[in-house]
């Protein structure tokens, strides 16, 4: 598919990252909203490993199938090679992150933790969005013949 060459794996990866960070943000706000609810256990979405292995798998496949670009370094993101389906299948897993010392009402939300998680999530979300914007900007520059 010619479109695959234009919008490569990096764009799929960044799009997925934005999607999963949105879901994580929803969980974090759910934790902060329930900071005073008895018996509530905070949760977060873990997907970094899954996303990384999805990228890796697609890069392995890229080396074997003819016509696609092979990666020459383990940290490289393959240009194409069927990675899109794998990446779009990543859903992450919800893990409970209770505080070591829950309150007497059984609530184990730690506000400091949640706030720092939220900040990290937000920064990484912004980074993905910015990279995505730059990717499209690069494409646009190419379409305008560098003008």
């Amino acid at each position: 598919m010619p479109v695959e060459g234009l919008f490569n794996t990096t764009i799929d990866l960044l799009g997925k990252s934005v999607d999963l960070r949105t879901r994580n943000q929803n969980l974090i706000s759910s934790n902060i909203a329930n900071a005073e609810t008895p018996g509530y256990t905070p949760k977060k979405l873990e997907f970094e490993q899954q996303l990384q292995s999805a990228v890796k798998k697609s890069s392995n496949r890229g080396m074997h199938s003819a016509g696609s670009s092979a990666t020459t370094h383990p940290a490289h993101i393959p240009l194409r090679g069927g990675g899109a389906e794998r990446i779009s299948q990543v859903r992450g897993t919800v893990v409970e992150t209770p505080a070591k010392t829950p309150g007497r009402d059984g609530n184990s939300v730690e506000m400091e933790n949640e706030m720092s998680n939220m900040m990290q999530n937000q920064v990484l979300f912004n980074a993905s969005v910015q990279l995505l914007a730059k990717k499209f900007e690069g494409l646009r520059t190419a379409l305008r013949e560098g003008k």
């Binding site: 929803n26 909203a33 979405l45 859903r91």
Partner: peptide, 11 residues
């Protein structure tokens, strides 16, 4: 919503 949606809680 998928896996994360089921775990969301309002108060």
């Amino acid at each position: 919503d998928g896996v994360a949606g089921k775990h969301l809680r309002q108060v």
